[in-house]
Structure formats: C-alpha cells, structure tokens
Design a protein around this nucleic acid. Structure first.
Lengths: 89, 89
DNA sequence: GATTTATTTAGATATTTATTTAAATATCTA
DNA sequence: TAGATATTTAAATAAATATCTAAATAAATC
C-alpha cells in the first residue's frame, strides 16, 4: 500500500500512466514524451512494474508497456474505509 | 493533485488520517500514537492541512485536528478517468 | 505578570529519491 | 558474426524529504 502511494506520488510516473491509458507503448515511445533521459524513464517504469501498475512484454526488439488498472481497487478501498466512519454501509 | 498524492505517500500521514477517522484529536494526542517527535508530527499536520485533508481549530490551549474526506473526490476522479479509456460512461 | 502546558517555527542533519552519463545486455538485420 | 537499435543496469550526483534539538509563540492558571 505504501509503495503504491509512493509510486503514484511522482508526476512523471502519473503521466506515464496517462499515456498508457491511450495505448500500449514501447519504452522509447514513452521517453519521447519527456525531457528526461531514457535510463530515468526506465527507472520509473521499473517502479510502476513493481507495484503492478504496468505490465511489460517484449515483442522482438521492443518492450511494450501496458496499463493495469486493477491495482486502483486497493486505493479506492482505503479511501472508502476512511470515509465510512466505521459504519457498515 | 501532485501535492495531494505526495502528502498521501507518507505512512505517518496516512496513519494520522486513520486516527482522525475515529474522532477529532489534538496535536498532542496525535503525537502520542507515534515514536516521532512532536515537531515532526506538527510538520506532517501542516502538510495535511496544506492539501485540506485535515482542518485545525484552536479550542483554548489545544488545537484540534479533524479529517476532511471531500478531497478524495479528486483522486477518485483521476482514477476513474484512467480506467474509462476515453469512453463516456 | 510569571509559570506551566500545548504547539509551532527554525536550523541542522540524515535519508531517500530522481536524475545523469557510461557501460552492459538483448534482439534484429545485413 | 558484426553492426545497429532498444532498453536496462551501475555508479555518481543533486535535490527533496523526514527527522531531530532548541527556541519561539500562544493560551491558561496561579
């Protein structure tokens, strides 16, 4: 849970997710959207993978990244638990 | 939006929110729940206030903190936008 | 008004995190 | 298999963040 929030707390990583929302992209295509070095983007992708927010799959020379939204359930549960003050709703 | 995620990315701050879910607490009562100095807790409370996750109100000698959950709407919107891939649902 | 209690502010330090350049790995093509 | 492209890993640096102690502010009580 902590890693998940930590991962989402970086604007570069959130923008990566927004890019992947549209379609799967290679690491290179992703890095083209930023003024940041490729190794830095690769590092962000690794963190996103660590918490399962993205998947990666090699297709030949390229590695394609895709978004996984199921993880957000955890956040929504955390929020709802905080909102419903102990009541069973 | 960035500040909000950043604020939530710290476990101490999230635990503070969970404490405030039960009832309003003074800064001192909050800090009793942690093995962290009062100034550090005060700093966390300031960050939580900055993004409106908590309110503070002085009652005499004490300052009471309370949880504000309306802010979570922003996060939920952000998540839903990412999940609904452009479709209007 | 001096003292006590509650909390914050300031300044310093240590840890974490993002970023960079350079080198390594993997795949494809000629 | 040599060369080109795509991506990651490693090592170093810089910036951001959490934490601490000490000092400052604010209200209550004596």
């Amino acid at each position: 849970m902590n890693d998940l929030f930590k991962t989402l707390s970086d604007p570069t990583r959130r923008k990566i997710l927004e890019l992947l929302k549209e379609k799967d992209l290679t690491a290179g295509e992703i890095s083209n959207n930023f003024n940041i070095s490729k190794p830095s983007i690769s590092h962000h992708l690794k963190l996103l993978k660590n918490v399962d927010l993205v998947y990666s799959e090699r297709r030949g020379q390229h590695i394609y990244y895709s978004l996984n939204t199921t993880v957000f359930q955890d956040i929504i549960h955390w929020i709802l638990n905080l909102k419903n003050n102990g009541e069973e709703r």
